[in-house]
Design a binder for these strands. Sequence first.
DNA 1: TATACATATGTGCATATGTACATATGTATA
DNA 2: TATACATATGTACATATGCACATATGTATA
Lengths: 109, 109
Amino acid sequence: MSVFRAPGSQKAQGHVPSEQLSLELADFYKVFGDFSRIRILFSLLDNELYVNELADLLGMSQSAVSHQLRILRQNKLVKVRKDGKTSIYSLDDDHVYRILTQGLEHISH
Amino acid sequence: MSVFRAPGSQKAQGHVPSEQLSLELADFYKVFGDFSRIRILFSLLDNELYVNELADLLGMSQSAVSHQLRILRQNKLVKVRKDGKTSIYSLDDDHVYRILTQGLEHISH
DNA sequence: TATACATATGTGCATATGTACATATGTATA
DNA sequence: TATACATATGTACATATGCACATATGTATA
């Protein structure tokens, strides 16, 4: 793994992990580290759904769902398709699916 | 994936994801979703290190490191070995290593 | 065009969280 | 035993964050 700084920029024993990479990885996990967002992603595993369907399904307000969908969009985890008045959301690709299944494997040891 | 509730407990189209599982998975990701904790874990990839070594290496206070190590301990991501006055920390098992490498794969697309 | 509907978004607030500071706990050494 | 050292932890506070509320934007229909 090229997680570390170039030799010479380190002080004592141990390698200082790259701050850039650490930040990116933490941000990556942060998106998945929220109950509502995980539930939204799970809901989209089978079907694409529009915003109000998600809100009803999960018992969340339209506002809350929209705000979380925005975060998921910005992080390229979901994509939108417009159909008239409705915005239809789906997982961006099966990359997201793999991340979720790997996470589930880890928590079931 | 058995991520969903039993059929019958769902309303319209779409499956309501299990709240229990969603919560566990979000909490799992939440631990990794912090810059300082990721850096600590990366630092422990090669070597075991004691608290002050980590603090010096990462430019963090002893207090901050200890508090984060506590969270990592509670989530079984690191383990402690006592040697006199010092507490020597290491990754709990290579399960943690796998999680980190998978995360890195994802952010590098 | 006026209205209803679906979604997006700005804002405020309550809660969560990371860390500094101070201190407690535990261990080795003089 | 007294002191220094290493770590753990309680507390306060600043910041981050998720969501409710109100409203803006965009689209279809009467």
